[in-house]
Design a protein around this nucleic acid. Sequence first.
DNA 1: CTCGTGACTCTTG
DNA 2: ACAAGAGCCACGA
Length: 114
Amino acid sequence: MATPAKSRLERNEVYQRFYALVDSIPRGRVATYGQIAREAGLPRHARHVGHALRALPPGSELPWHRVLNAAGRIAPRPGGCTPEQRRRLLAEGVDVSPEGRVDLARYRWDPERA
DNA sequence: CTCGTGACTCTTG
DNA sequence: ACAAGAGCCACGA
């Protein structure tokens, strides 16, 4: 068997942890995929955060738009919802360049600091 | 199970 | 600042 049931359950738990972390990003702040993975106790699992967010239903309440890549850019994705992510961030007071770049030094969420 | 792909990241040049 | 290569590992065919 390539995928034991136990692994699937664990994956689900990991996803829930990612969702909880993303959900705790304050309004007007942003975080990176790698950062979320680290906070979840899984360093170098940045891609898994991407997978988790990709599996999110369209009408989700989760603030997925507050998650950017390590370069402080809106992650390009096949869906084509990138413009909407930029729009949502702007609506929260996050300055996003037309190219989708955000100043992480200014907007990065620091769980320790608040 | 193998293989290709990817909402990633880091290091080099 | 950008491009290329390597590392990482789950997902879907």
